[in-house]
Amino acid sequence: MLLAQESGAAALYAGGTELLLAMKSGLLAYDALINVKSIAGLDAVAADDRGVVIGASATHSAVERDALARERLPLLAEVEHSVANARVRNVGTLAGNLCFAEPHSDPATLLLIYEAELDAQGPSASRRIPVGELQTNSYETSLAPDEMVTAVRVPPFPAGMSGAYSKFGRHHRPTLGVAAAVAVEDGRVADVRIAIGCVSPVARRLPRSEDVLRGERVDGLAADAPALREACRLAAEDADAVADLHGEADYKAHLARVFLERTLLRALGRNGSGGDA
């Protein structure tokens, strides 16, 4: 495989929206770029037994417009529609976005609550990586130098679960992203998934906030309900926000609190309609 032969002197090139910016500013330099867009079929969006398989060279706009994705993953399609700007969406790819591991990514946060997985192909073997185990730090992943992501596998939310995503910021990249999905049974929160991203180098699930909400009565979950407030307080702690050009850590922790509440209430509001979004 080319990537192995070049041993670090080459990079995979799909959309190039992040890679070329970094190369132009001199942060990265490679002898060769390997164009994966020419691999036939790698841009396919197809169904498998668990959900939707999004090929590594499928662009954000392709996902946003794909009939299957819109039907089975409406929240993903909705968020893909709001990634960056039209120019980025038309050439940037979903898999490329994840692999570049830029900390301010919408899909990296959202796919955590979908519990998505990645197909990674090395010279001799392939493996599946849970999306939460791909990124290890800013611009760093668990992929081997000769390994390439070939597809993103996204299962739909279980029946009865609906979700929402919020992002906030004044820069081109979001300052904060919060994803939440809630399943309601008999008037109580049967299941809940929460993820936060952009405020720290790696997006993460917030299990302590999820635990607080599980089993709570839905009609009691107004804006100032104790359980909701506690879940948001824990989110502010567990987000592990760091200071950068987007803001100081205490402000980002505060935003985590505000936007978890807003996102959860939106997700709950959508729950009545019964769909995923």
């Binding site: 910016l21 820069h171 081109h172």
Partner: peptide, 8 residues
């Protein structure tokens, strides 16, 4: 922030 991504 010498670029139009970080300088908005």
């Amino acid at each position: 922030n010498p670029n139009l991504v970080d300088y908005r």
